[in-house]
Design a protein around this nucleic acid. Sequence first.
DNA 1: GTGGTCTAGACCACC
DNA 2: GTGGTCTAGACCACG
Lengths: 128, 128, 128, 128
Amino acid sequence: MLLELDFSSDTPIYLQIRNQIVKGIASGELEADERLPTVRGLAEQSGINMMTVSKAYQVLKNEGYIKTDRRSGAIVAAAAADGSQHKGLGERERNALEVIIAEAKIQGISREAFLTECGEIYDKEVIK
Amino acid sequence: MLLELDFSSDTPIYLQIRNQIVKGIASGELEADERLPTVRGLAEQSGINMMTVSKAYQVLKNEGYIKTDRRSGAIVAAAAADGSQHKGLGERERNALEVIIAEAKIQGISREAFLTECGEIYDKEVIK
Amino acid sequence: MLLELDFSSDTPIYLQIRNQIVKGIASGELEADERLPTVRGLAEQSGINMMTVSKAYQVLKNEGYIKTDRRSGAIVAAAAADGSQHKGLGERERNALEVIIAEAKIQGISREAFLTECGEIYDKEVIK
Amino acid sequence: MLLELDFSSDTPIYLQIRNQIVKGIASGELEADERLPTVRGLAEQSGINMMTVSKAYQVLKNEGYIKTDRRSGAIVAAAAADGSQHKGLGERERNALEVIIAEAKIQGISREAFLTECGEIYDKEVIK
DNA sequence: GTGGTCTAGACCACC
DNA sequence: GTGGTCTAGACCACG
């Protein structure tokens, strides 16, 4: 798990970390029950504050993507462990998606081109 | 053009305005050369400060979605039929899309279900 | 004398008019003692307010570029009629020039390329 | 970095700040990756409001002259060695240059005198 | 009446 | 500590 951080991005660093871990889980790069790097390790390796990494882990934990075990640190939670999920995009995600699609339409990207691009992103998977 | 603002959202108000206007343009609710509400009017109607609206308009102007006619205020810019455009998602949009798709995958939303939802959003249009 | 106005420019319309007339005089398109269009005529032809044209003429008059005669309207003043001129750029112009040159340098435009472009602009003349 | 502001100028303060920083970068007074004064610091030192400085920084950021590192504030962006640049004056700059040259011509400044002055401005650099 | 600019002061997220 | 955001109210240039 190598983080690519953009310190001049408008996305907070802790969210960049959170996003990349989520993408890592979805792509299969991070498997269920796999141990994540320690807070200290990730912070030192990336040249950022431990608090920042810690916050990212806390968000991920709140969202159910990871679990923290006292002995083994943070591990990836089993996919869809939460039965309460309603199999649909959350409101925040749906709204963000609407904005992205609106921008794409205005820019002249066709429906097909957009769906193709989405499909490619969906299929993206790490070769292990 | 009616704005729905969430004052407790983590998305700044000026960005909420910006996003809704972008969606309005994409959906056809706002047509090219149509006049946007005045800064003052929108601010008053929405119960927010002039400068907040002004900032949203400035962002939209920088992004080329609107322009300000010195005679008549802000108007929707003609959909840039500019050949110099990349015709592709910007890096920011693409990354945001990747994160959303990752979340959808983890949540168990199938490829088809996701693309269907995108298609529906894309097709959404205002009946004039 | 045909005006090209950009209503969405950040330069006020009256200044755009002023600038184009100054350029017209420099290029020889407008000769000394030539009569300028009437305020009303220029306003109607360009679809702008008479006040705007009037303000442009007033600025030009204050700067000594034109004179107004009660009978024949506005006419181009003889070049350098004003003996008080000190044959150097004004402070405003010099500062604007410095900024433009700074931008050019940062953008990687070489000294020679910049001077060449300036020379070409200087030489530009209307074929009568 | 010492700012000279003219509160009675018709150029907005935030633009005066922007211009002086651009000149500072071009002259070498501000080097790439150098930290700019904080918004608060510059505001206090110059006796102006934070938001005015902030606006100047935002403009500079939009134009790519600076970027804001989330850890350390605003820094000078590395001179974009980006090959995609046009390597030419922008339309706004070119037009402003045309006006300045027109004024110079009318005032009787010779081609050589003008180019010499431009060259001197171009060569101006800070002794470090 | 329009947008542009500026102020003084405040709160907040991030690091 | 940093920048980002927002407010309430003001003045001004422009058309």
